[in-house]
Write a protein that binds this DNA or RNA. Structure first.
Length: 923
RNA sequence: GGCCAAGUGGCGGAAUGGCAGACGCACUCGACUCAAAAUCGAGCGCCCCAAAGGCGUGUGGGUUCGAGUCCCACCUUGGCCACCA
């Protein structure tokens, strides 16, 4: 074996691991598991796209692999699996274009992904690989759907229970079986309802709220419109409180917890009933407008009301003379896309209905308007407007000249002129002009008014959530079919578990129908079926992509079980996941849905714990290499600071008078904080790393890096770039740095000859004290840093070790063997080969982690800095065990220190034991 | 607009309130070589010819014997949410 040749080494060890099933994970109770603590380390499994692996994938996968290998060496029973989230739109769109069955492209993509992932040498147990499109897998996705369908949420018990245990009220029972069925259906956690949904005409499907961003589809960016359609929904709102409360103890990034909390959007307040004044034409009917408010204490300041244009009362209360204007406004609002409706900074619009409501507390007559700044989908779709204490109401009142009243003033006794202030006062304070509330602090006023409203039947306490029920059906081909039938009377009949999996029909044409009927409706033979001689139809919608990813981590635990989604004893052993690593883009989608399913399955007794992922870490995105960009307009340079962001985008696409010019490092110099052009130092140049994208041409393909430097170098580099969570730019030059490090480590141990054998400088002699100290400090540092996912500093410590040993004449085997074990989780192929060169026959994957000896790591002599008035003046070499008095004496005796003190009186001497001395002198 | 992060050499980054810049890249010099590459060694924050010295962690203030680290305000960048009553 000559010099370090990663391609050779890596191929050989990947083969070794595969043929020996080195990383096969024994089931709990199998030989070798006794007494071992478990550790479940999970990656977010990839969608196998046609583009192949991206350098972002190995980032998280390497981090988890290092931990999996580390934990094995520390004696843990480790579960570390991989699989494919293989349902998805790209495969279906490709199928539509080329008329290839999505199953074929999906399998091709999986093959590519598997090859690429295996080339990185991850220690997955490939016997546990799962594929969400495999009937053996989605059988259980469908089974879980049926379980959720079979569940209702019992608010008293605070948990999901079998639908058979749902109490049926007598009056419902009295109306017959159909009524009982409808009653049950209305309580199921999976239910059908006609709701305004996000319909995306371009994609021919509906989308979940979570999949719509600024009124456009998250995938593809197509416009989305609101349409009332009958769809399947999941009652995730029933679990809102538990999803919120159970976040607290989780070891997750605070930012992700916050995003979930905001998404759930719990607000506490009150519902208040406002009677409509009887001045409409229809004097015989009395109407009540119910509003939700988080500030019931401002009730006396309500000067008008607003109904959303879709509110059913708008038509009923509008007076004849305002009817045309209101109708026109409603029509205009309906035409607007969500994007237009929620556009910021636009002025608010609305029209008066002609009707008045009565403030239930002070009998004030206030006008009722309709305006699209009030959303039909939140609260009751109606508000009481308090322009004195709400930004939006203030803006609207200002626009339409509606009265503004002050009913809260800032706390404290200071002077207070409500007319002097520029806008509404929205903070908590003290109630004024509010009848019985006057003088009460906001918190008390809130409580007081709620009690008053409840006692008079005018309203009640109320908790509201932004979270909506989860729209669960899609009009697509490439997804799990719903395992239900629709009977002749429109009733839903779940398939018996024995009939699962329900495999989708083979289709010639995968195109969306363009209507809410899914593509499956084209397979009439499949759709139409009979039961007991009666005609039944299969559901033609399919499940969203999230379905398969909601529970894949459960299937890894028992992937080939045909009798259950997983064996309960195995679930008890492995759950919860100890570490879950993936991108932050799943903060509210996958991570919220998976938690919801988990809780339902927990409630129904199928899972041992209420939360799936104990610890979550987001790896930061890897950007392309930093680019220097100068801007030109009409042939003249423009400073980067003067260019607007929007123009930059256009310029980089070549669609503007502005031109973006890539410049080289030689053309620029640093001036203060900024880079400027050498030829014209007045021109600032932009230095920025961008997201990798095909159009920008800055995508790095992991295959190329592996060919050039090997998988170990790629792994090591991605971990050395910086903290795992940080966003960081790629630099191929820096890959060479870690490649060189591996080469140095290699040459330290391996003889430069034909055969693989130890370097002639290798010695069995006892290492010197200093070298032992370096080793043990490295063992401590690498162990602690690996445990805390601080891989960059762990690698730096290993580099320092190699730098130290390189300087030695003789290389003691006694420190090199432990070093190879430290390296093993990071660069496993090279480490295995070095382990063999050191004379070992078997894999090092289960070798015990080197033991740390604090006595050997201890310094004999330390260097202590001495400051005078906080400024460094000297460094003292002193024995490590020096006490404070001796250290202080040594400091004060030092020449440089005495010179700095200059005979002035010493006010105090601060001694930090063994760390530092600070001499404080006057003046 | 709101909320949350983060601003440290030419670059990526390191630093339980205690020697700022570990480790690596780039660069410079030296050794080896006919030469180059590879490798090995040395240097490398800024000012100053150099030394002595001074200045240095986005800006301004504060707390502290001592601040990159804690607090306040501002600036910049990134992320998330975006009329949720």
């Amino acid at each position: 074996m000559p010099s370090y040749n990663p391609a050779d080494v890596e191929r050989r060890w990947q083969q070794f691991w595969e043929t020996n099933k080195t990383f096969r994970t024994p089931d709990p109770g199998d030989p070798g598991t006794a007494g071992k603590p478990k550790y479940y380390v999970l990656d977010m499994f990839p969608y196998p796209s046609g583009a192949g692996l991206h350098v972002g994938h190995p980032e998280g996968y390497t981090a988890t692999d290092i931990l999996a290998r580390f934990k094995r060496m520390r004696g843990f029973h480790v579960l570390h699996p991989m699989g494919w989230d293989a349902y998805g739109l790209p495969a279906e769109q490709y199928a539509v274009k080329t008329n290839t069955h999505p199953r074929i492209t999906t399998q091709q993509n999986i093959t590519t992904f598997r090859r690429q992932i295996k080339a990185l040498g991850f220690s997955y147990d490939w016997d546990r690989e799962v594929d969400t499109t495999d009937p053996g897998y989605f059988k259980w996705t469908q089974w879980i759907f049926l379980t959720i369908y079979d569940t209702w949420y019992d608010p008293v018990a605070g948990k999901g229970r079998p639908i058979s245990e749902l109490p049926i009220p007598d009056d419902v029972r009295g109306q017959g079986e159909d009524a009982v069925r409808r009653y049950r259906d209305a309580h199921r956690l999976a239910y059908q309802a006609e709701v305004p949904v996000n319909w995306c005409p371009e994609m021919g499907t509906v989308l979940a709220n979570e999949e719509v961003i600024d009124g456009r589809s998250e995938v593809g960016g197509f416009p989305v419109e609101r349409r009332p359609l009958r769809q399947w929904l999941m009652r995730i709102t029933a679990y809102a409180d538990r999803l919120l409360d159970d976040l607290d103890p989780l070891d997750w990034p605070e930012s992700i917890k916050l995003m979930q909390r905001n998404w759930i959007g719990k607000s506490e307040g009150a519902e208040v009933h406002f009677p409509v004044a009887h001045e409409t034409e229809d004097h015989t009917v009395s109407h009540t407008i119910t509003v939700f408010t988080t500030r019931p204490d401002t009730l006396y300041g309500a000067t008008y009301m607003v109904l959303s244009p879709e509110h059913p009362l708008v038509d009923r209360i509008t007076t004849a003379e305002h009817r045309d204007a209101v109708r026109a406004y409603q029509a205009a609002a309906a035409r607007k896309s969500d994007f237009e409706r929620t556009e910021v900074a636009k002025t608010k619009t609305g029209v008066f209905t002609g009707a008045y409501a009565v403030n239930p507390m002070n009998e004030a007559r206030i006008p009722i308007w309709t305006a699209d700044y009030v959303l039909a989908s939140y609260g009751t779709g109606a508000i009481m407007a308090v322009p004195g204490h709400d930004e939006r109401d203030y803006a609207f009142a200002h626009e339409y000249g509606l009265p503004i009243e002050t009913v809260v003033r800032p706390a404290g006794d200071g002077p207070w002129d409500p007319d002097a202030r520029p806008g509404p006062f929205c903070d908590d304070g003290v109630s004024v002009n509010s009848g019985p509330l006057s003088g009460l602090p906001t918190a008390d006023a809130r409580r007081e008014i709620t009690v008053l409203l409840e006692s008079r039947g005018l309203g009640h306490r109320r908790v509201n959530y932004k979270l909506r029920d989860w729209l669960f059906s899609r009009q697509r081909y490439w997804g799990e079919p719903f395992p239900v039938l629709h009977g002749p009377g429109g009733e839903v009949v779940p398939l018996p578990p024995a009939e699962l999996p329900l495999v989708p029909p083979d289709l010639e044409d995968f195109k969306p129908t363009g209507t809410p009927e899914g593509p499956l409706s084209k397979a009439t033979d499949w759709v139409n079926t009979t039961r007991g001689g009666q005609p039944y139809r299969r559901e033609t919608n399919t499940m969203p992509q999230w379905a398969g990813s909601c529970w894949y981590f459960l299937r890894y635990i028992d992937p080939r079980n045909d009798a259950a989604f997983a064996d309960p004893a195995k679930l008890r052993h492995w759950l919860p996941v100890d570490l879950y690593v993936g991108g932050a883009e799943h903060a509210v989608l996958h991570l919220l849905y998976a938690r919801f399913w988990h809780k339902v399955l927990f409630d129904r007794g199928y899972l041992p714990c209420p939360e799936p992922f104990q610890r979550l870490v987001n790896q930061g995105m890897i950007l392309g290499e930093t680019e220097l960009t100068a801007y030109q307009k009409d042939g003249k340079w423009v400073s980067a600071g003067e260019v607007k962001e929007a123009d930059k985008e256009l310029a980089s696409e070549g669609q503007s008078a502005l031109r973006a010019v890539r410049v080289s490092e030689e053309q620029v110099e640093k001036k203060g904080q900024a880079f400027v052009l050498k030829e014209d130092p007045a021109v600032r140049v932009e230095a920025r790393a961008h997201k990798m994208s095909k159009s920008r041409g800055n995508v790095v393909n992991p295959d190329d890096i592996i060919t050039e430097y090997g998988a170990d170098s790629l792994r090591l580099y991605e971990m050395f770039m910086g903290p795992l969570e940080a966003v960081k730019p790629w630099s191929t030059k820096s890959v060479e740095g870690v490649y060189r490090f591996l080469g140095r480590a290699w040459r330290l141990i391996v003889d430069d000859g034909e055969e693989l054998k130890p370097h002639p400088a290798m010695t069995d002699a006892v290492p010197d004290r200093d070298t032992l100290r370096v080793l043990h400090k490295t063992i401590r540092k690498v162990g602690e840093d690996t445990d805390h996912l601080r891989f960059n500093t762990a690698i730096a410590a290993m580099m320092e070790f190699v730098n130290h040993v390189t300087k030695l004449e003789a290389r003691p085997r006694a420190v090199l063997e432990p070093f190879v074990l430290l390296l093993a989780p990071y660069a496993p192929h090279a480490a295995e080969e070095l382990w063999r060169a050191l004379g070992h026959r078997d894999t090092l994957a289960y070798e015990p982690w080197p033991a740390f000896d604090p006595a050997l790591a201890r310094d004999d002599e330390i260097e202590v800095p001495v400051q005078v008035n906080g400024k460094l003046k000297a460094r003292l070499k002193v024995p490590a065990e020096i006490d404070d008095q001796a250290l202080e004496a040594a400091a004060l005796a030092d020449e440089a220190v005495m010179a700095a003190v200059g005979g002035k009186p010493v006010k105090m001497v601060k001694v930090v034991p063994r760390k530092l001395v600070n001499v404080v002198v006057a003046g």
